[in-house]
Design a protein around this nucleic acid. Structure first.
Lengths: 78, 78
DNA sequence: TCCAGCTATCCGGATATTGACATATTCGGT
DNA sequence: ACCGAATATGTCAATATCCGGATAGCTGGA
């Protein structure tokens, strides 16, 4: 069990990661959507990178597909 | 110049990171909002973790504040 | 203490997203 | 090539976010 790391810079980037994670788990959009109380349409649109999607849905999907997000903030310690 | 790493699991988490990054750059919500064509209100709500915010706005803020996101997807390579 | 800058929050109307349903299209396996 | 599952996309009414403008509250500095 290794870990694939991907830089995320846009809705499209995160959509692709979510799609990969979903497929890796052998889930259909419909199955996942039903589990989370989302519409199949929403899952499809998120994976395709629609920019006007609510954050909550994205985080729901990340959690359900086991994707971990890390933020890196450059800090200049004086 | 070091790098602070934070696990992101929710809109609140990402809001806090964005706020830290903004403050580290000495910017006000209004200044940042104007730069990005957002309202000061939007920046405030994002930082406070409002879950029904469009993804695009969050990515705009991440870019503007220099925060890097990384996704980690557990993969079982047979 | 006074004041300016910053942030959180209210209202109101315009606009866009939402889910449900339906369906065209694509994809994978046999 | 065929067939069923999966996915992308259309419409539509309902709903919620959006921004502007305004403002109250908070904070730090002079």
């Amino acid at each position: 069990m290794s870990t694939a790391r991907t830089r995320i810079h846009s809705p499209s980037d995160i959509g692709l990661v979510i799609q990969q994670a979903r497929l890796a788990r052998g889930l259909s959009q419909t199955t996942l959507a039903d589990q989370l109380g989302l519409s199949q349409r929403a899952v499809s649109e998120i994976e395709s990178g629609k920019p006007t999607i609510y954050m909550r849905k994205v985080f729901d999907l990340l959690r359900a597909t086991g994707v971990e997000l890390t933020a890196e903030l450059p800090v200049d310690e004086r």
